[in-house]
């Protein structure tokens, strides 16, 4: 697992989020998002919101938009399975919604329990009317998030960037 590479894309993504004027970052912690979360916490202009369950994040960002702020929701692919009902609200009101999803249950997965949800993530999002951008190249993550942020905030859509497990690396069961 290339730790340096991981930090690099997080930095670039963070810059993109700042440029898109993201001020609320809601998250359920995930190893793949660790650096991004750290940067969000360290940045005084960003309000980090740690959630108990991912569905809370969709609602928080609806409120953020109502109050004039843009936000992003960071989660793992399993969390996608918790937000489907709440996405109905974002869909119906056409709230912009930017989600960055680190994938599990695919490339090199060690935990079989992650596989069903990981394999269903993309189709479930699409069934909910979310536009999905998938990225497997570290060098393409930042530009993908930038495009997704535009589509979300300017185009007024729900957009998810799925960051492949190949990029975030896979955990070692023995660690």
């Amino acid at each position: 697992m290339a730790t340096k590479k991981k930090t690099d894309w997080s930095k670039d993504v963070f810059k993109v989020l700042k440029k898109a004027d993201v001020q609320q970052i809601a998250y359920v912690p995930d190893a793949g998002h660790t650096s991004l979360i750290k940067m969000a916490i360290a940045d005084n202009a960003i309000k980090p919101v740690s959630l108990t369950s991912e569905q809370e994040g969709v609602a928080v960002l609806a409120g953020a938009w109502l109050g004039g702020e843009a936000g992003a929701l960071l989660m793992q692919s399993s969390g996608v399975g918790n937000v489907i009902n709440m996405l109905g609200m974002a869909n119906e009101c056409r709230f912009p919604l930017l989600m960055l999803v680190t994938m599990r249950g695919e490339w090199g997965e060690f935990n079989p329990w992650q596989v069903p949800m990981g394999q269903a993530t993309e189709s479930v999002l699409e069934a909910s009317g979310v536009i999905v951008h998938r990225v497997d190249e570290p060098s393409e993550i930042a530009e993908t998030v930038e495009a997704a942020a535009k589509l979300a905030f300017e185009g007024g859509r729900m957009v998810a960037v799925l960051i492949g497990q190949r990029v975030v690396g896979f955990k070692d069961w023995t660690k």
């Binding site: 995930d30 190893a31 660790t34």
Partner: peptide, 11 residues
């Protein structure tokens, strides 16, 4: 802490 994902504080 969320032990499995980098020991972030839980609530």
């Amino acid at each position: 802490a969320y032990g499995a994902t980098g020991n972030q504080h839980t609530h």
